[in-house]
Simulated assay, not measured.
Amino acid sequence: MDHTAIRRVRELTATPEFNLVVFALLLNFPWEVLQAPLFEGMAAAPHSAVISACLQATLGDAVITLLAHASIMAVTRRRRWVCVPSWREAAGFVAAGIAITAVVEWLATRGQWVQTWTYSSAMPLIPGFEIGLSPLLQWLIVPPIALWFVRRQSARHRSVDGLH
């Protein structure tokens, strides 16, 4: 790699979005694997099919993460809010993710034009909405951990760069 390419890679990996997506991918995949039995047919599906479905869901989680990040960025007009989030920014991020996830879950399970997956009888449902509890809990647990990791990562970058 030449010096320009190395610099571009360093610049990319220092962006808050890159770090947020990396941590979202790493944290959401195990959650997706653990909740797989809560979806119809996953308990009996071949291992490769479960892994494939969980990878697809994890990529969807990363997209939702970026959309939730963008929603807070639009409000705060600060791209790097995620590096040192206030409690309001973190709460807004989680709330945006829950809202997006709820819509995706409804469309995927109940929507007239998209039925993508079905819950197994083991999935606890939110009464009145009939959407799965596990995907919503995922947004209460995983993204705050991802924010914590991004904050630590950005602090490390500042220390290494002599900015802290």
Rank of each mutant, 00 (worst) to 15 (best):
W87I: 06
M73I: 09
L38Y: 10
A36D: 00
H157D: 04
R10T: 04
V103T: 08
L163T: 05
L137Q: 06
P143V: 06
L107C: 10
W148Y: 14
F39T: 02
L20M: 11
L140H: 04
G111N: 03
M42K: 11
W31S: 10
R78V: 02
G92P: 02
F93P: 00
V75Q: 14
F23L: 14
R77V: 06
R79I: 13
Q153V: 05
C83R: 10
A102M: 07
A155N: 01
I6E: 11
V84L: 14
L27D: 01
V21K: 01
L38M: 15
V82T: 04
D61Y: 03
E17W: 09
N19D: 07
I100C: 11
G162P: 01
G41D: 03
T76D: 13
A70N: 12
P30N: 14
H3D: 13
T118S: 15
Y119A: 09
M123Y: 06
V63K: 11
P127G: 02
W81M: 10
V50I: 09
L20F: 07
E89F: 02
L27F: 14
L12Y: 06
T13D: 02
L140V: 07
I126H: 00
D61S: 15
Q35N: 06
V9Q: 07
G128R: 12
L140I: 10
L67M: 12
H164W: 09
L26G: 12
S120T: 00
I145C: 13
L137T: 04
Q56N: 09
H69N: 10
A36H: 00
D61H: 01
Q115M: 10
A43D: 15
I141L: 15
L25T: 06
V94Y: 11
I72E: 12
L25Q: 04
G92R: 06
Q112M: 11
A74Y: 11
E11Q: 13
A90D: 03
R7N: 13
L125K: 03
C83D: 14
L27W: 12
V50Q: 02
L38V: 09
S71M: 13
A53E: 03
E105Y: 09
P144W: 05
A57V: 02
H69Q: 12
P16D: 06
A102H: 05
V75E: 10
A74K: 12
G41F: 02
V160Y: 04
I145V: 13
D61N: 15
I131A: 07
I141G: 03
L25F: 14
Q138V: 02
C83A: 15
P16Q: 08
Q138M: 12
A70C: 09
G92I: 04
D161F: 06
A95S: 11
H157P: 00
H164E: 05
W117H: 08
T109K: 02
Y119R: 10
E130Y: 07
A74T: 06
W87Y: 11
A45Y: 00
L25G: 14
L125C: 07
M123G: 09
A36S: 15
I98Q: 01
V94D: 09
V82M: 10
G41T: 00
Q112C: 07
F29P: 01
V114S: 07
